[in-house]
Simulated scan of single mutants.
Amino acid sequence: MTQEETRPIASVDHGTPEELDGTLVFRLGYDGAVYSGFAEQPGQTTVAGEIRRALETFLRREIELTCAGRTDAGVHAVGQYVSLPVHESELEVTRSRWMRALAALLPHDIAVSGVYHAAPGFSARFDARSRTYTYRIVTGDAPPLLTRSVTWWHRLPLDVDAMQDAADRLLGERDFKSFCKTASAVGKPTHRCVMEATFAREQALGEECLAFTIRGNAFLHSMVRTIVGTLVEVGCHRRDPVWVDEVLAACDRAAAGPTAPARGLCFMDVAYDNGALTVCP
């Protein structure tokens, strides 16, 4: 290792104890391939566990960490947000210092892209107005090469117009119990509001994919991947678009299509009220 790699990162000197009187918010991304999801789990390698370790190392204290949305094992992110209450002295840490410290303390597959201040009591989860996910699919005989870890290779052609017709039926406030992992829906509300559900062609590293973007106030466990698996059934002409209406009405996971693979899903962004976040100087 080089001298730069072994040089210790300076942590915050709190001085005398203070009340927690502000909130730090981080925008981050991660390659979810090796993680057992975002949420911490005993004996598992998780995104939240790595972030907590890095922040507690830098701040030299235990923290209370809140995320905008928990992602499943293997799911990626470019616009996840996490918040934590902090002391006044910790709010004085500059953005450049945070970026240097976290680049050194986090593993190579997790990266912070933004640092913000928010009012005391702000929550990355409960103050979120909407969340956006994109699921990427590659079709055709040739598998993706450079994008293979972030796309689902589906050999059969897909009727995008039919899939869009089916996706339009998900818009608005609905009961999405049919699109939720059964065990996680027991005794919990399953109504959500979908504000956008659209398909578009994208190119990355010379490879083309079909990108399905969905935006909603919140999402249930495995909801987006189950929606994608259901829409692909329509795109393959195994089902008609109107079938989605029947799936919604059934309120039964068995009525929907299969769950699409985790690797194609990416948590893209979170929307907050204007002025809720202030860029860290």
Rank of each mutant, 00 (worst) to 15 (best):
S123R: 13
K181Q: 12
A167N: 02
H191A: 14
H191M: 10
H154L: 10
V160A: 05
M223Y: 02
W152K: 05
D159A: 14
W243L: 14
R129M: 05
G216T: 03
T190A: 15
L156N: 04
P189T: 15
T213H: 06
K188F: 15
A250P: 09
V150R: 02
M223N: 02
A218P: 05
A197P: 03
K181F: 15
P144T: 11
A211I: 14
Y135W: 13
D161T: 09
V232D: 00
T190C: 13
A185V: 12
V150S: 07
T226C: 02
F122I: 04
R201V: 14
G172Q: 03
T230H: 00
C180D: 07
G187P: 15
D127P: 06
H221N: 03
E208D: 13
V244R: 02
T132N: 00
D168T: 01
T230A: 00
W153E: 10
Y135K: 06
Y135S: 08
T226G: 02
F176H: 12
C251E: 14
R129N: 06
A167H: 02
V186Q: 10
P157E: 09
V160R: 06
I214S: 00
T190F: 13
A183Y: 09
F212G: 11
T132F: 00
T213L: 06
G206N: 08
E173G: 06
V242Q: 11
M163F: 05
H154T: 05
L231Q: 01
V244A: 05
F219I: 07
L205W: 13
K177Y: 04
G216Q: 01
V232Q: 01
R215E: 14
G206H: 11
T134M: 02
T132W: 00
H221L: 03
T198Q: 12
L146K: 07
P144V: 10
A167W: 01
S178I: 07
R192T: 13
G216V: 04
L156I: 01
F199T: 07
V242I: 11
V242T: 13
R125F: 04
V244Q: 01
